[in-house]
Measured scan of single mutants.
Amino acid sequence: EINVTSHGEEQAKHWIELAKRMNLDVEVEIHGDKIIITIK
């Protein structure tokens, strides 16, 4: 399980695309200006 804290939408999209390509599950939480991505 990987937790990524992203401070930008572009960076977040990059991680989500990467996870989808690798067929991994992704959870995205938004806390103000921080985007927390959990890849399982």
Score class of each variant (00 low, 15 high):
residue 20 K to R: 12
residue 9 E to H: 09
residue 6 S to C: 15
residue 16 I to A: 04
residue 15 W to P: 05
residue 4 V to L: 09
residue 5 T to G: 06
residue 14 H to W: 15
residue 22 M to Q: 03
residue 23 N to S: 11
residue 5 T to M: 08
residue 36 I to Y: 07
residue 12 A to S: 04
residue 36 I to V: 06
residue 22 M to E: 02
residue 26 V to T: 01
residue 8 G to H: 10
residue 2 I to E: 05
residue 29 E to K: 10
residue 14 H to V: 13
residue 8 G to F: 15
residue 2 I to P: 05
residue 10 E to F: 12
residue 13 K to F: 12
residue 19 A to D: 04
residue 31 H to S: 05
residue 37 I to T: 00
residue 40 K to M: 05
residue 5 T to H: 07
residue 7 H to N: 09
residue 16 I to M: 07
residue 29 E to P: 00
residue 38 T to H: 06
residue 37 I to D: 00
residue 5 T to W: 10
residue 21 R to M: 10
residue 4 V to F: 10
residue 17 E to A: 14
residue 40 K to H: 03
residue 9 E to Q: 09
residue 26 V to S: 01
residue 3 N to D: 05
residue 30 I to T: 02
residue 18 L to P: 03
residue 23 N to Y: 13
residue 19 A to F: 15
residue 18 L to C: 14
residue 33 D to S: 12
residue 5 T to N: 09
residue 28 V to K: 00
residue 25 D to K: 14
residue 31 H to A: 04
residue 11 Q to S: 10
residue 10 E to P: 05
residue 17 E to Y: 15
residue 35 I to P: 00
residue 12 A to T: 07
residue 15 W to Q: 06
residue 8 G to V: 13
residue 15 W to D: 05
residue 1 E to N: 08
residue 8 G to P: 08
residue 37 I to R: 00
residue 14 H to G: 04
residue 3 N to L: 11
residue 3 N to S: 09
residue 28 V to M: 03
residue 16 I to T: 06
residue 20 K to M: 14
residue 6 S to A: 14
residue 21 R to Q: 04
residue 27 E to I: 12
residue 29 E to F: 13
residue 14 H to D: 04
residue 16 I to Q: 04
residue 34 K to Y: 14
residue 30 I to S: 01
residue 3 N to E: 08
residue 5 T to D: 06
residue 10 E to W: 14
residue 39 I to M: 04
residue 25 D to E: 12
residue 4 V to G: 06
residue 28 V to G: 00
residue 26 V to H: 01
residue 38 T to V: 06
residue 37 I to K: 00
residue 12 A to L: 14
residue 3 N to M: 13
residue 15 W to I: 08
residue 15 W to A: 02
residue 6 S to V: 15
residue 4 V to N: 04
residue 20 K to Y: 15
residue 18 L to G: 02
residue 5 T to P: 06
residue 39 I to C: 08
residue 31 H to T: 09
residue 28 V to N: 00
residue 23 N to Q: 07
residue 6 S to E: 08
residue 19 A to S: 04
residue 36 I to T: 05
residue 25 D to Y: 15
residue 17 E to C: 15
residue 40 K to G: 02
residue 12 A to I: 14
residue 29 E to T: 11
residue 2 I to A: 08
residue 27 E to S: 12
residue 22 M to W: 15
residue 19 A to H: 08
residue 12 A to G: 05
residue 30 I to C: 14
residue 29 E to N: 04
residue 37 I to A: 01
residue 25 D to L: 13
residue 33 D to F: 15
residue 25 D to M: 14
residue 35 I to L: 04
residue 13 K to H: 05
residue 31 H to I: 12
residue 13 K to D: 05
residue 34 K to W: 13
residue 40 K to A: 03
residue 8 G to Q: 10
residue 1 E to D: 07
residue 14 H to E: 04
residue 24 L to P: 00
residue 38 T to Y: 13
residue 11 Q to E: 08
residue 35 I to E: 00
residue 31 H to M: 09
residue 32 G to H: 10
residue 4 V to T: 05
residue 31 H to P: 01
residue 10 E to Y: 12
residue 23 N to E: 03
residue 2 I to M: 07
residue 9 E to V: 12
residue 36 I to D: 01
residue 1 E to A: 10
residue 18 L to M: 08
residue 30 I to G: 01
residue 31 H to R: 11
residue 13 K to A: 07
residue 39 I to E: 00
residue 38 T to I: 10
residue 3 N to Y: 12
residue 17 E to M: 15
residue 17 E to K: 15
residue 38 T to R: 13
residue 12 A to N: 09
residue 2 I to T: 09
residue 22 M to S: 02
residue 16 I to Y: 09
residue 37 I to S: 00
residue 7 H to M: 11
residue 16 I to P: 07
residue 13 K to W: 14
residue 26 V to L: 03
residue 25 D to W: 15
residue 2 I to Q: 08
residue 16 I to E: 04
residue 12 A to F: 13
residue 17 E to N: 11
residue 14 H to I: 14
residue 6 S to F: 13
residue 1 E to L: 11
residue 7 H to K: 09
residue 19 A to G: 02
residue 23 N to P: 02
residue 19 A to C: 15
residue 20 K to W: 15
residue 10 E to Q: 10
residue 19 A to P: 06
residue 27 E to G: 04
residue 40 K to D: 01
residue 21 R to P: 07
residue 26 V to E: 00
residue 8 G to M: 13
residue 1 E to R: 05
residue 24 L to K: 01
residue 26 V to Q: 00
residue 22 M to D: 01
